[in-house]
Design a protein around this nucleic acid. Structure first.
Lengths: 228, 228
DNA sequence: GAGTTTTGTGAAGGTTGTGTGACAGTTTTA
DNA sequence: TAAAACTGTCACACAACCTTCACAAAACTC
């Protein structure tokens, strides 16, 4: 059973971006571009969770949230709110209204994905995939632990997210730019060579114990997980 | 379903060049020579993506971009902007406006094709072909790997792009000049015999293991992939 | 078969891309 | 509040790769 997510977002560019990435992550996704449409879609098929923009045409995110919470027929759908930085101080109101979490734009995709997983884990534990496997490595999201050959590998936060991203699509080559967008976020500007340093650290951690390199460098293209 | 691309470019020479090469790559292409024409064409048939020159008569590329993003009836069309080097510093504005990527003129065709694929992959994954096959060879773009008889063939960046180009039209003969334009770019000047050297290296790599030559030399014309 | 044109290829030198230790600043932990 | 862990950047060294050249080999011409 794959989780069904409704994303309510009027900005088309962001909406498709989310749709694509959530689908890649294994969710079934539907887009609503305003509050009314969102409620309509919920009445057609109750989603496992919703991602809800704060500012929306016709019916604001907060109103949608209230409607859903008030309506007895819709069960307790987990909701994550998207807010712009300027609206940040209103987050309390958002949480009051019944949102399970909020995230301020701009955000890194990995951040949103992590929160969606967290919220889903709380609400529908059976739906969520908790661990990634590849070759002799296991990454467990719930415990934030990585094993290689059954032996625990200590990783810093950035290295963990990096590995998580690699393991979500083993073998695929990611350019440094793509990695920055995925791990750090599109809005942050981070020196391109920083990626090398973190990949280097990830490498050292994974390969401790003289095993063969788990990461492949593809010259003039980027890095990939060795998918053997 | 082959992807439909609208190229908006007022410089006729470049426009035809792009049309020719994109069609060869398997896209359906339409040319618009100014911004107004572009919007008209979009209203007639929504493309899967657009290549948009920054400087255009009547309605600049950036304005076209804004119009498309603002108009609710046009869905989120992926856009790649073409900018001249002098406008490079404005690229931030380009991305702000909602372009998915930009590329500065002059550029190598292979570069543009790669970006088009990247953008399409993000927006319409089903439309894009990730691997090329020919005879006993497979080239996988997502993992940057080449197999012959199921065995991995190690290639440098230039050899990889060269093979990619050959495999995009197996059997077709490319002149050294055409290869330079496609792999290195039209503005770079590279000695013509350099092509020979790289073809030689590609040959050696592919034929390692005494198989029959995968590349055909056509005397006084150029090289081609053996399409058997 | 001698002369001409075109191509293959080894070697040399230059260029670019990558790995990595060090460091100063920041955040987290104890 | 001090110590530890982590982050992002830089500079340097090294390895991979690129381009060119010269000469040898091959293909073609007559």
């Amino acid at each position: 059973m794959i989780p069904y997510v409704i994303v309510v977002e009027d900005e088309a560019a962001l909406a498709t971006l989310l749709q694509y990435n959530l689908e890649k992550e294994g969710y079934e996704v539907a887009i609503a571009s305003d509050g009314e449409e969102a409620l309509l879609m919920v009445s057609e098929r109750v989603p496992d969770m919703m991602v809800l923009d704060w500012m929306l045409p016709k019916l604001s995110g907060i109103e949608v949230c209230r409607c859903l919470r008030a309506d007895k027929s819709t069960p307790n759908i987990p909701i994550i709110m998207l807010t712009a930085r300027s609206e940040e101080d209103e987050r309390v109101r958002g949480l009051d209204t019944g949102a399970d979490d909020y995230i301020t734009k701009p955000f890194a995709l990995s951040e949103l994905l992590a929160r969606i997983r967290a919220v889903l884990r709380r609400a529908k534990p059976s739906l969520i995939e908790e661990s990634l496997h590849c070759g002799n490595m296991v990454l467990d999201r719930s415990t934030h632990k990585v094993l290689r050959h059954g032996k625990e590998v200590p990783l810093g936060p950035t290295e963990f997210r990096l590995l998580e991203h690699f393991m979500s699509q083993p073998g695929r080559v990611f350019s440094r730019t793509q990695l920055i967008d995925a791990i750090w976020g599109t809005e942050v500007d981070v020196e391109i060579r920083t990626v090398d340093v973190h990949v280097g650290r990830l490498r050292r951690a994974l390969n401790a114990g003289h095993q063969h390199d788990a990461i492949r460098t593809v010259r003039s293209a980027g890095y990939a997980l060795r998918a053997d």
